[in-house]
Structures are given as structure tokens and as C-alpha cells.
Design a protein around this nucleic acid. Structure first.
Lengths: 199, 199
DNA sequence: ATTATTTCTTAACCCAAGTTAAGTAGTTTC
DNA sequence: GAAACTACTTAACTTGGGTTAAGAAATAAT
């Protein structure tokens, strides 16, 4: 099951041939380790309790990553779209069962590479190791940013900031999910939006 | 200004001679790069806007790390005690101005090493690089954990969890700071504690 | 087109946290 | 020991989110 270039997002190709600067041969080798995976809307790429041993690139589609509390309520940590990498970082790195659910919000086409394959190829192509580490750092800072946001901003401020910084999200994601991401219930978001109309 | 062994926390010695498994000579070399720094109570090790170029180990004392929002309210991210490393990770890694304030809650004695010295010695002693990376991973997962907690637990649940997992904190830290850490105002914490007495 | 399903809004009520300000207790300082 | 400062609590009031349930609107399925 080989992957043809025409089936790979241009952004993926650009990332590894230009930013990571793999040679043509290195890129071919790298890609050869990937496998396509389809996750239909509403299905799960990953569930809490599972241990991940692969990383996935979203070639097409979108997903939401959430945890579930004791009472069965879902809490969305983030959304992912084309050109994002999804998975449970903690499970991937520690090899222990994860706490995250990753569910397709739209039909997803993923490009997946197993952890062992990735580690193998890192030895041959050191740039990939470096890229992976940087990716990890960025993920950390994104999480830190989320934490700061949630501590320093009111729900209303978080809503306005999301609207300003990521307006496209509102065109693709149901408001109930956005409410969960903001940390409030759908009726609260509804009330808030009404409140803000008068401003 | 040399550091004598008797002046270094046994935990620090144990960490690097046993867990990181440095040889006697390596340890001596490593320690020689450190410099002592004293931060009196209420003074700042770091302020938002500054760019850090060192890491600090708390040999003695405690600190709080917080951000400040637009309205001037402080939001405590975490507390640190003996045997913890403090600083602004994001500023340290990206070399850009940080958003964190690190203030001594008790008189602090720190062991500090500059970023450049640490990078130099990493080349000579690769175990240190590995240790540092692991430290970074753990920091990430701690942040993730905080985010999950704050999203899935109510203030009361967060309070009870803190009380259960870190009861010693209540013996060393003013309740107003704990309130900030939990994400509520001091009167709310006070009311909550009163409420919980009847249970 | 009709039905079914999903998504969003609204209303009513409750409750907990925010806010402000006052007051108490404990500690430090001189 | 009095004054000053800090930490904590309490009260009164406001505000905004949670909850539940019902209904409206939009979308998908048949």
C-alpha cells in the first residue's frame, strides 16, 4: 500500500522537503513508512485507556481531542485540522495508557507512522529527530498557553479571543463543541452571544 | 566562589551522582559551573518581560510562579520548594521575554547555572542532556495535568485534591495564594472551607 | 417532501463565585 | 506594649454559569 505524491497534502511535502530539508531520497524513504488510515465522522482515532504507538498527520478532515471526567462529561482540549498532528502525546512518550479521546468531527484521512518506525528512521535521518523535538517543545508551549488563558481570562474573553484569532473554527465546528473548548455549557455560550450582540 | 558539598542539598547530590549516574569527577565539574544566589522573601527571582538565561535549583526556600493579567490580577501557576527547578521554561528555551513572575515566598538559596554553561557541559556529559530532556517532558506532562484538572474539576474538587495530595502545602503557604492557585478569590476559598466543615 | 436527527436557543430556577468593605486575629516592627 | 502590617474571615449584594427541559431551527436521511 504505497502512498503517491498526489495523495499527500502539499503542506506535508513542503514541511519535510523544505523546512526539515530532507533530500528527495530521504523523503521517499520517510514516506514509505507511512500508512493511510480512514476515520469516518464520529468514529474514534483513539480512546482513553489505550496506549498509542503511532503518530498521525491529518491529510484531510478534522478532529476533537477531549477527556472525560468521573461524571461522564466531556472536556475538549483542542481541535485539529488538516496539517496537524494528532494523538495522545503523553501516552506516546511514556508508553502508558492515555487519557485522551480523539474523535473525527469530519471524515478523516490520516497518514500514520508507528513509533518504532519513526525511531528507526530518526537514526538514519537526524533532522527528523530535531524536528520532532521542536514539535514537542511547541506542543508544550501551546499547552502552557492554554493554561494561562484559562486562568487569566473570563469565558467571555476567551470566546472573543477565539473569535478574533480563529474565526474559521466557527464555520466548521458546532457551537456545543466550542462551548466545551471554552469550558462552559452550551446554554451559557448561547446567552453570552446574545449578551454580546448589544455591544 | 566555590560550592562545598556540605552546602548542597543531599537530594541534589543524590540526583546527579545516583540517578543521572555522574562519576565523581563529572559531578565536580558540573557543580563548578553553579553559582549561589540568594533571593529574600518577597523579592523576585524573575519578572515578566525578562529573558532568562539560566536555570535555578532551590537549595532552600520556596517560591510562587505567576502571571499577571491586563487588570493587574496575579494568577499563580505553581509553587516550588526545595529540590525543584524554577524559571520560565518558555523564555529559557525560546530566548524571548517571559510571561512569568517567580517570587520568593520564603528566603531562598538557589543554585544557578547559565544556559550556555549547561549547553557546554552537556556536550562533555551526555547523560545531562538526556536528564534535561526528560525533565522537559515531565514539565510538559505536569502542565497538561494542570490543564486537565482545571477543565474537569470544580474549584471544590481541586481544593480537596490538593488537600489530599499535598497537605504540607497548607502548612507553608498563605491561603490567599492557594486560592489563586485554585483559580478562585480568597473569600470563596474561605466560604468553601466553612461549607466543607459540615461534611 | 416528510421524517428523523442534530444543533442551537430560550426560559426558569438554583447556586457558587466575584466584589467590596468591614472586622478579627495573628505577627512583626520599633 | 503600641502601632503597623499581613492574613483570614464574614457579610451583603451582584453576577454569571450550571441544570433541566422545552421548543425552534437547521441538516441529514429515507
Amino acid at each position: 500500500m504505497q502512498l503517491y505524491r498526489s495523495e499527500i497534502s502539499p503542506l506535508f511535502i513542503e514541511l519535510f522537503t523544505e523546512k526539515v530539508a530532507l533530500s528527495e531520497a530521504e523523503f521517499e524513504l520517510f514516506v514509505s513508512y507511512f500508512r493511510r488510515e480512514y476515520i469516518p465522522r464520529k468514529f474514534f482515532y483513539l480512546k482513553a485507556g489505550q496506549t498509542t504507538n503511532q503518530t498521525a498527520y491529518i491529510n484531510k478532515g478534522s478532529s476533537r481531542t477531549f477527556t472525560m471526567d468521573d461524571k461522564g462529561n466531556e472536556h475538549i482540549m483542542h481541535f485539529s485540522f488538516e496539517d496537524w498532528w494528532i494523538g495522545d502525546l503523553q501516552s506516546y512518550h511514556t508508553g502508558s495508557p492515555g487519557r485522551m479521546y480523539v474523535q473525527a468531527m469530519e471524515d478523516c484521512e490520516l497518514l500514520c507512522i508507528s513509533k518504532s518506525d519513526f525511531e528507526t528512521i530518526q537514526i538514519r535521518i537526524p533532522q527528523l529527530k530535531e524536528w520532532h523535538e521542536q514539535k514537542f517543545h511547541k506542543a508544550h508551549f501551546a499547552t502552557l498557553n492554554r493554561l494561562v488563558e484559562i486562568k487569566t481570562l473570563t469565558p467571555e474573553e476567551r470566546y472573543l479571543q477565539l473569535l478574533e484569532k480563529h474565526p474559521h473554527i466557527f464555520q466548521r465546528i458546532p457551537l456545543q463543541y466550542i462551548a466545551s473548548y471554552l469550558g462552559i455549557e452550551p446554554p451559557s455560550l448561547s446567552r453570552m452571544r446574545k449578551r454580546l450582540l448589544g455591544k
